[in-house]
Amino acid sequence: MATALPTLRRNWLVTMRAYQWTYFVGTLATGILTVGLAYLAFHAIGGGRAGGGFAAAAGTADYLGYVTVGAAASMFTVRMVLWVAKAQITEQREGTLESQVLAPARRLPYLVGVGLQALTTTVVEVVVMLAFAIMIGVRLPAPDPVTLLAAFVAASVAVFGISVPLSAIMISVGEAHITQNTLFVAMGLLCGFTFPPAYLPDPLRWLGEALPVTSALRALRAATLDHAPLSVAAPDLLLCLALGLAYLAVGLRLLGPAERIAIQRGGSA
């Protein structure tokens, strides 16, 4: 793990020097827009009441709370994936992938370092967004702190886990945009950020369950909206952790070959 902290520090230095405020505003705007639109729809169209079907499918009648937690989780996922999955393709573009691969350091601690730094930045962004939601009058019930913490950890592992194979795909095809956006669209549709996956046809629902973000999101909502104790959220938490670690293991196996493909494609120097 010797590489994790230096990589964390390196990314801090770089981020402090060249933080893209446009990113911050951009992500924040998305989160705020989601919550804001839900708020408008809820009051203007629904007259302040969600349909009875929603309560049955979502397990809660608190539509605004449901959407707010979803938007916060979505922001967290997107930002973390962008940081972690794009770390290596960024190295490739800046010409440092070879010096990275040339060193004996392992990839997991490197990515953990990137992930930890991403976590600090992302948490700040999510907190700012939640503060906005509370400001416009979304009432978030007091969460169960233990379940919330466990869900946060599980969600972090899940998002980190899916980022690693994504990184391997990105460097081996030398492309980030299409890859990341495909994942984001799939997650937006399947994982239940804005609407309960119960509305989806069965095959799509199963597909959603294969993504650890789906179970992470259920656990997060249980912790916040339902004030659920750890024992109730435990099955989702375990599923999320198991899936996240499986993605991580597969990703780590893929990285070596992906790096070689990337270097070979890198052209003759």
């Binding site: 010797a2 590489t3 230096p6 990589t7 390196r10 230095l13 770089v14 020097r17 060249a18 800046e94 010409g95 440092t96 070879e98 010096s99 990275q100 060193a103 004996p104 350091a105």
Partner: peptide
């Protein structure tokens, strides 16, 4: 370009030393 543009010379050597 085998070094990091957004780090200083010393930070680069420090980081690679860690790797």
């Amino acid at each position: 370009r085998m070094v990091y543009a957004r780090l200083t010379g010393r930070e680069n050597l420090w980081y690679f030393g860690q790797l």
